[in-house]
Design a protein around this nucleic acid. Structure first.
Lengths: 177, 177
DNA sequence: GTCTATAGTGGGATAGAC
DNA sequence: GTCTATCCCACTATAGAC
């Protein structure tokens, strides 16, 4: 009944779920495991989330907020914007591989996300590139690079820093042109 | 004992597995379902594949061969090479969404793939762009676009043909520069 | 190369008591 | 808002007979 106070079990569940996801991967994201870490039984979680999808959506929303924040923060730096965004994007993906995949590999649970969140995350890229199509090209390029890197698709001896440098160059030229 | 003859159950299993994957998605790719479609019991499959991973690898290998063939074929057309490759890449991804994801979303079972297959698939892109880093940028851009499109991440009203046109332009400029 | 039987493991979710 | 008990489902994989 108290207002403005921590939500208790619900918030703790999201925190635990995220930790399990990030440290052990998506297989660890089960109702039983999450409940176990909280010291409660799995059925109790259903008092706080309608189903597993609801819990996942809460984790995704938190990830999106953090990602958006990181992207915005990068634009506040003194670095050239395209390079700054690229660096922030790659850093987030590599530091949170499982979270990144949960957020990007399948359809978003849009019906369970706060309205406007998805758009607000895209804003830094859209603002930087102006043109919508070019912004989407930039987004896809960054996502493709992170996705392939996380999937181990580049040869072990590939110079990925060099590839990202090339990507930034290509986007800078397109943005200037 | 016969030589040069159809492999029978093994080949049929791969065919069925691929059909199930493509028509019903990855959840349908179970030993039980595959066996059921063949009219045999699941344990019988283990006479033909050491485990599920072996069966998946066979499906992936088939997909890689087909994809590589489509990319090579596109270069033989009269179209400008970057545009031709982009069109072939997108077409394959959209026509085989589940197969595409099985091939690209996680680490390849390299120990179970024919030697050289992975490299041969990459060859058309590498040849077209010459520079290794630029080739990887092009690959990542195409993969990112297909991946985001398959995940339903672009707005419903997004002009994806326009985005691909922009991507091709950007890569053409980089290749010429 | 197929079968039956089965081991072993794991999952999401509900009912109803407290 | 937690518990216990339970349902029902699914999966990979092995052993051993035929």
């Amino acid at each position: 009944m108290t207002i403005g106070v921590a939500e208790g079990t619900r918030a703790a569940s999201v925190k635990v779920a995220r930790r399990l996801l990030e440290t052990e991967g998506p297989e660890a994201l089960t109702m039983r495991r999450i409940a176990g870490e909280l010291g409660i039984q799995a059925p109790s979680l259903y008092k706080h989330f309608s189903d597993k999808r609801g819990l996942e959506a809460a984790v995704i929303a938190e990830g999106l907020r953090e990602f958006g924040h990181a992207m915005n923060k990068s634009l506040a730096s003194k670095a050239e914007p395209v390079r700054a965004l690229a660096r922030a994007y790659r850093t987030f993906g590599l530091q949170h591989p499982h979270l990144y995949r949960l957020m990007n590999d399948r359809e978003l649970p849009r019906d369970l996300l706060p309205p406007g969140l998805e758009d607000s995350v895209a804003l830094p890229i859209v603002m930087t590139f102006g043109d919508r199509s070019l912004a989407r090209v930039a987004w896809a390029l960054a996502h493709g690079l992170v996705s392939l890197e996380l999937a181990g698709r580049f040869p072990a001896d590939a110079d990925l820093n060099g590839v990202w440098d090339e990507a930034v160059r290509v986007l800078q030229v397109a943005r200037a042109g």
